[in-house]
Computed example of a mutant assay.
Amino acid sequence: MGDARHLPPPAQEALRWGTVAAWVAGWDREDVAAVFGVSLKGVGIWRAKW
């Protein structure tokens, strides 16, 4: 995917919600990061904010 900061804001929001939904569904942080193409740090931050 590359750097998600270059996506339009609605796409960034969808990506964030997708990662949180996957985590809530029981995925581990490493799998979420790999599948969505984001950093482990990003997953942790979004999860904490949720």
Rank of each mutant, 00 (worst) to 15 (best):
A14S: 14
A33T: 06
R47L: 08
G18F: 01
V43C: 06
Q12A: 12
Q12F: 04
A4V: 07
V35N: 05
A33L: 07
A4L: 08
L7I: 02
D3L: 07
D28G: 12
V20H: 07
F36C: 03
G2M: 04
A48D: 13
A4N: 09
R5W: 10
A48Q: 12
V20F: 07
S39Y: 02
V20C: 08
K41I: 13
R5T: 15
W23T: 14
A11V: 14
V35P: 02
K49G: 04
A14G: 12
V24K: 08
L7E: 11
P9W: 03
R47G: 03
V24F: 04
G37S: 09
R5D: 15
G2Q: 05
E30K: 07
P8Y: 02
H6F: 11
V20W: 06
D3V: 01
W27P: 02
S39M: 06
E13C: 10
W27R: 00
V35Q: 11
W46T: 00
A21F: 05
G42E: 15
A34D: 15
A21C: 08
W17Q: 07
S39N: 04
V32L: 06
G18I: 02
E13Q: 14
A11K: 14
A21E: 10
V38L: 02
A21G: 09
A48Y: 08
G18C: 04
K49C: 00
W46N: 00
T19N: 03
A4H: 11
D31T: 10
P8F: 03
V43I: 12
A22Y: 01
T19V: 15
A34F: 08
E30L: 02
G2A: 15
R16A: 03
W23F: 12
R29H: 06
Q12R: 15
W17P: 01
A22D: 10
A33R: 04
H6W: 11
L40C: 09
W50G: 08
A48C: 10
W50K: 14
L40Q: 12
W46M: 07
A34N: 08
A14M: 13
P10N: 05
V32H: 04
V35S: 09
K41E: 15
S39Q: 06
G26F: 01
G42R: 03
W23K: 13
D3A: 06
Q12N: 11
R5H: 12
W17D: 08
A22N: 06
L15W: 01
G2D: 09
D28C: 13
E30S: 12
W23Y: 12
F36I: 00
V32D: 04
V20T: 09
P9S: 06
A25E: 13
W50V: 00
D31L: 13
R16F: 00
K41A: 15
W50N: 10
E13Y: 07
R29P: 00
W27K: 00
R16S: 01
G44E: 08
A33F: 01
A11T: 10
E13N: 08
L15E: 03
A21D: 10
T19L: 02
G37M: 06
V43F: 03
M1G: 15
H6G: 15
P8I: 02
A14Q: 15
V38I: 13
R16Y: 01
W27I: 02
W27E: 09
T19A: 13
A4I: 06
K41P: 01
P10K: 03
K41L: 13
A25V: 05
L7T: 04
K49E: 14
A22K: 08
D3T: 02
V43T: 07
V32K: 01
